[in-house]
Amino acid sequence: MCHPSWGRARAAAQRLSDFARLRRVRDRIDREHARPLDVEALARGADMPAGHLGRLFRLAYGMSPYAYLTARRVERATVLLLHGDLAVDEVRRAVGCPSPAVFAARFTELAGTEPGAYRAAHRTAAEPSRNEEAPAVAPHLA
């Protein structure tokens, strides 16, 4: 005996439980993005194969864990470039991005300009307004 609605309920419960696990992965990225962290480590922490994690994460959040991790690093880099005195390469290391080439490429893709130019453009204004200094990547409030 197996009523069809039981199967549906089980599938829905499984989906919610998967989403809750993904939330913990995403929270870990938010929490630890400045530390050495890669998809393998995230998958180990979530106790699922990296490929499976990637597929589920993309389904839930619309991007791969790697893309989300890099986006968080770039977002933090925009803040450090605007508000600190670290050199560009120090910023890259401070946000946990191991590769200068990847950092430059992803930063340019997400912020619209390469890191050094981003700082120069946004720091020329004597007293930038709140709007002007908003990072290209939305502040991570929620």
């Binding site: 919610l16 439980s17 989403f19």
Partner: peptide, 15 residues
Amino acid sequence: RRTIAEMMAKGTYGW
């Protein structure tokens, strides 16, 4: 209802 439950589980609903 399902969407709300899923957003809660994903962590994108309430704050």
